[in-house]
Design a protein around this nucleic acid. Structure first.
Lengths: 324, 324
DNA sequence: CGAAGCAATGTGAACGTTACCAAGCGGAAT
DNA sequence: ATTCCGCTTGGTAACGTTCACATTGCTTCG
């Protein structure tokens, strides 16, 4: 900046004014400065800028998801990024792998850079370490899951109702032996979906058989093993409720059974309607989740100070039947 | 930091040393400082830090992709993020939508924050604006596509060879009327894949019919329209080569034909092996692309100064045949 | 005609941190 | 006892900006 000032024959302050697009600089001076900026290829250091401008923040937000490679979170991330870009913010991203230690590291790295806001898919771990950054002014919004004991805006979908409807659909089709395959139940969404599964059974008076519930499935291998155990039961299930996309894929990827089983999955998949038989799913809208979370975050950043809000978005049961 | 220093009865300099984990602080003093840090919930401002430490950089890198919501780039992003996290870097992400203007805005926002490196899926636009940041020390690596006229490390896959093999596979199965459906040919990968298509035809002496080539397809709707025009030809194609995943999905999503057509797509899809008939594809490994790009970038950041390298990763033709 | 007002620009300090060097202190060597 | 060394600690300045105020030179008006 000093170089530009020297080249244009003005003080650094005037350069600052021109670069920031402030009014009150004589047109001739502004032109001279602009020319020097262009010729020297000068670009303002926005880190230094936000250091000085105490009240304006860093124009950066952090996005912390479970796994950025998961298409669901990738779509969310894209929505968040679009809104941020529109408002002149940059986005820092990190994945937690559902590991509270890694979550903490990632968030610490973000708050150390004084992000103005944080959109967070929280892990099961505590979030006390967020107190200081929040007092310092960092706004936080949870998405996909709430964080226990953290009073912040939260955007989720109606996991429980969605699961209930999915299982009710299977009951409607005459199934009574319905297995529930889930990821770790310390993940909030998974516990909710399991609760929805139980709701549907209770609603119809179908006894819940604990042998039909398998959880903690984190890979195709574990899903396959769980299936083997289910098939080995004296009364094996005739239908499956799979409570996330990875498990649904694991089930579809398993060796075929002699007697086909009905499957309803949580989360839609591309090509699900082209399978034989087509796959019925509970779909949620990751775009809406991300956009809503970003809306809430930016309204907080803009100064909104109402009590924390819980936004619950609907899911849709996409019933797919064989092509006519 | 001053507050911590006061609370611990030392100078800010000593606090700085303790927080940075430097040696040469008396154990008792360090303990007192650590306690004050904990009690006050102090966290160092890493922006201010990197401003002062001229030679150490910002420990931030930027990742600029076409579309973060595309599972292919999401997987790449995840690999990059993992490496960055392992090395203590944070990642800024942005999507360009293949729009040179947006690319420029995103990159400018990143370089204004003085990222140490940039992993870039370049658009068709010029990249002269990168000269100054690069002279200033920002390292750049291109991935998925080269940037014209930009002498930097570049990681791509053998698009042309992959497409050639895919089309050769269709020729082997007796097809001679093979259509080529692509996105905009100003996207390097699309042009390469089209070239591979022509290579395969030329190799077997099959005449290339321009009426069978449709490009610029950016949505299912456009893909469907292109298909309609192909079916209306006097001699319609009996096979399709679709040169990205979105177009493959568009084709699969189209109303079924009375006589089925063979499809080979570029990019693998989940469930592709469960379709009827299963889908043969050219697959590339986004994880390897991202990891390789990150490797190259960090070795540059570490001071490596060899001439720019072009790394070309292989593709695989996954030939899928009906079960049983 | 002098004071006041306005527009354009410059000055000094500060944001939060660390590099660099100096200073204090106790003990070991002479 | 004096010198010197090493260890620990502190002071000062600087990184690249911008805030708040001061200054300059005009124009305008009573």
């Amino acid at each position: 900046m000093k170089d530009v000032a020297r080249a244009a024959g003005v003080s650094p302050m005037t350069v600052s004014r021109v670069v920031a697009g402030e009014a009150g600089v004589a047109p001739g001076t502004a032109a001279r400065v602009a020319r020097a900026v262009r010729e020297l290829g000068y670009q303002r250091n926005d880190n230094a800028r936000s250091l000085r401008q105490k009240n304006l923040g860093t124009s950066a937000i952090g996005l912390v998801v479970d796994d950025l490679a998961n298409p669901f979170y990738a779509l969310m991330a894209r929505s968040v990024e679009d809104q941020a870009h529109r408002r002149g913010y940059v986005v820092l991203v990190g994945s937690t792998n559902d590991d509270p230690r890694r979550e903490r590291e990632v968030i610490a790295a973000f708050t150390a850079r004084r992000v103005d806001g944080l959109i967070l898919v929280p892990t099961i771990g505590g979030h006390g370490f967020l107190r200081q950054p929040m007092q310092r002014g960092t706004r936080v919004v949870c998405v996909d899951r709430p964080a226990r004991g953290l009073a912040v805006d939260t955007v989720t979908v109606d996991n429980r109702a969605g699961a209930r409807r999915a299982v009710a659909h299977l009951l409607d089709r005459g199934h009574t032996r319905i297995a529930c395959l889930g990821d770790r139940y310390d993940i909030w969404t998974q516990a909710e979906r399991h609760a929805g599964y139980l709701d549907a059974l209770a609603e119809r008076g179908v006894p819940a058989d604990p042998a039909l519930v398998r959880h903690g499935l984190r890979s195709h291998g574990e899903t396959h093993a769980a299936l083997e155990r289910l098939w080995a039961l004296p009364e094996p299930p005739t239908a499956l409720f799979t409570s996330n996309d990875l498990i649904t894929l694991g089930v579809l990827d398993a060796p075929p059974r002699p007697r086909p089983v009905a499957v309803v999955g949580f989360d839609d998949l591309p090509l699900a309607d082209r399978l034989d038989p087509p796959l019925t799913v509970v779909s949620q809208d990751p775009h809406a989740l991300g956009a809503t979370a970003a809306d809430l975050l930016f309204s907080r950043i803009d100064g909104e100070s109402a009590p924390p809000r819980d936004v619950v978005l609907p899911t849709r049961l996409l019933i797919r039947t064989p092509r006519g």
